[in-house]
Design a protein around this nucleic acid. Structure first.
Length: 225
DNA sequence: GCGACAG
DNA sequence: ATCTTGTCGC
């Protein structure tokens, strides 16, 4: 009997893949079309090979102003393997989220369901929270793109081999590579794109994730190793 | 066997 | 992700 649950992170790749196949069945495909008040952006940096620093930025949706942030530092032995990112960055992220206040929506650096087994980091971590999560990746991991958005606001669908919609490549700034948006949990591809565009300013990366990334780098330089 | 491969 | 300088373009 396998007693592995969502709180289990350390295991061999084969076991991790098996766990993903079981966990993806728990994902909820309902929609979230409300106007959030508080949102969060999550990112992770590595001050050294096996030390991960996760940051959760809390911001106000309407003003996109950073209200507060929380972080955690953890020793990580799990290597990075495409498709298993959540097993490497999950531990510090969940710990930082446990220190954070409740928000209405969370943005992650990586994919949601646009993943080989339909459960990227935004989806996996989405199972830990009771809120909608969105995955925003800087490059494609899985799925086929039909088109190339060129103007800000335009999007091109990402489909799996069977033609099912996984998410969208979204142009967040004219002339630059699009960001790949997919639902983490409890949200639809369309709403995810809508919220990404509403939280995008003058940069390619939406503010939640962008601010989290900036803080992750600044805090890294303040650590005494 | 070959190519692809989030951060 | 991380290691690293300058450089092309809006």
């Amino acid at each position: 009997m396998n007693t592995a649950n969502i709180h289990t992170w350390v295991m061999e790749p084969i076991q991790a893949i098996d766990l993903q196949r079981r966990l993806r069945k728990r994902l909820v495909f309902e929609d979230y079309a409300g106007q959030p008040e508080l949102i969060a952006g999550v990112d992770v940096s590595f001050p050294s090979r096996d030390i991960a620093l996760a940051v959760v930025v809390i911001m106000e949706f309407r003003s996109l102003r950073v209200i507060d942030y929380f972080h955690s530092v953890e020793k990580i032995d799990t290597p990075y393997i495409p498709g298993l990112l959540s097993f490497r960055e999950g531990p510090p992220i969940v710990k930082a989220l446990s220190k954070s206040p409740e928000v209405d929506l969370i943005f992650f650096d990586g994919h949601g369901i646009a993943h080989p087994r339909g459960i990227g980091i935004a989806s996996h971590i989405g199972l830990f929270v009771e809120k909608p999560t969105i995955g925003i990746a800087k490059s494609l991991l899985y799925g086929e793109l039909k088109g190339h958005p060129e103007e800000k606001g335009e999007k091109a669908p990402i489909h799996d081999p069977d033609g099912r919609l996984l998410g969208y490549a979204v142009c967040t700034r004219k002339g630059v590579k699009p960001v790949f948006v997919s639902p983490g949990n409890r949200i639809t591809p369309e709403s995810a794109v809508d919220l990404v565009l509403k939280t995008t300013g003058k940069y390619r990366i939406p503010e939640p994730t962008r601010q989290a990334h900036i803080l992750t780098q600044e805090l890294k330089d303040q650590l005494i190793l």
